[in-house]
Each structure stands twice: as C-alpha cells, then as structure tokens.
Measured scan of single mutants.
Amino acid sequence: DEIHIHFNGVTIEFRGLTEEAKKALEEAIKRGASEEELKELARRLIK
C-alpha cells in the first residue's frame, strides 16, 4: 500500500501507511502544508 503526493511538480512517495496516516497527510495537504512539513509528518507517521 503506497501513496503518491504530487506537490509543486515533485512526487513524494510513501509506502506502508495506515489509513489514519493517509488521512493525516491528506488533511495536511488540504490546509496547505509545505513539502518539508509533509515529509516530517510522514516520518512521524511511519515510525
């Protein structure tokens, strides 16, 4: 299970995320999180 985020022309790929983690990332994107914020969020979620 993986998710691809297209962000300002950059694709960020995450693997092994739970549904909750995906929802958290989607919410962050909707509120306009920066690419760095998304990566940091993903790091926290994957652990």
Rank of each mutant, 00 (worst) to 15 (best):
R31Y: 14
I29S: 04
E2L: 12
E40M: 10
A24C: 07
E2T: 15
E40N: 07
R43P: 00
D1K: 10
V10L: 08
R15D: 08
G32A: 03
R44C: 05
N8P: 04
E13I: 15
K47E: 15
H6T: 08
E37S: 05
E20I: 08
N8K: 04
E40W: 13
A24V: 14
I46C: 15
L41R: 00
E2R: 13
L17H: 01
H6K: 06
S34V: 03
K30A: 13
N8S: 04
A24D: 05
E2P: 13
R43Q: 05
F7E: 02
E37N: 03
V10A: 06
H4Y: 09
E37D: 06
F14S: 02
G32Q: 02
E36M: 08
L17C: 04
A28Y: 11
E19Y: 14
D1G: 11
E26L: 14
R15A: 09
E26F: 15
E19D: 09
R44E: 08
I12R: 00
A42L: 15
L17R: 01
A42F: 15
E36P: 05
I29R: 04
R31A: 12
L41E: 00
V10M: 12
V10I: 12
I12F: 04
I46Q: 06
L41N: 00
F7R: 03
R44K: 08
E2V: 15
L41Y: 04
A33Q: 02
T11A: 04
V10W: 02
G32D: 03
I29F: 13
F7D: 01
G16V: 04
E20A: 10
K30S: 12
G9I: 02
T18W: 08
R31G: 09
I46F: 13
G9V: 02
R31L: 10
F14N: 01
L45S: 01
I5A: 03
G32L: 03
K22F: 13
F14R: 00
E40K: 07
H4N: 03
L38H: 00
E13G: 04
L41C: 02
L25V: 10
N8F: 06
I3Q: 06
E13R: 15
E36Y: 11
R15M: 07
E35V: 14
A33P: 02
F7Y: 08
R44W: 13
F14Q: 01
D1L: 14
A33E: 02
A42Q: 02
A21V: 11
E37A: 05
E20C: 07
E19V: 12
H4P: 00
H6R: 04
I29M: 11
A42V: 14
I46E: 04
K23M: 12
I46N: 13
D1R: 09
L38V: 11
E26K: 10
I12K: 01
T18A: 07
R31P: 00
T18V: 04
A21T: 08
A21Y: 05
I29Q: 04
A21M: 13
G32Y: 05
K47I: 15
N8Q: 10
A33C: 06
E13K: 15
E36D: 10
I12E: 02
L38F: 13
E37C: 04
E36F: 09
I5V: 08
T11M: 07
K39C: 13
I3M: 10
E36K: 08
I12G: 02
D1M: 13
R43G: 02
L41V: 02
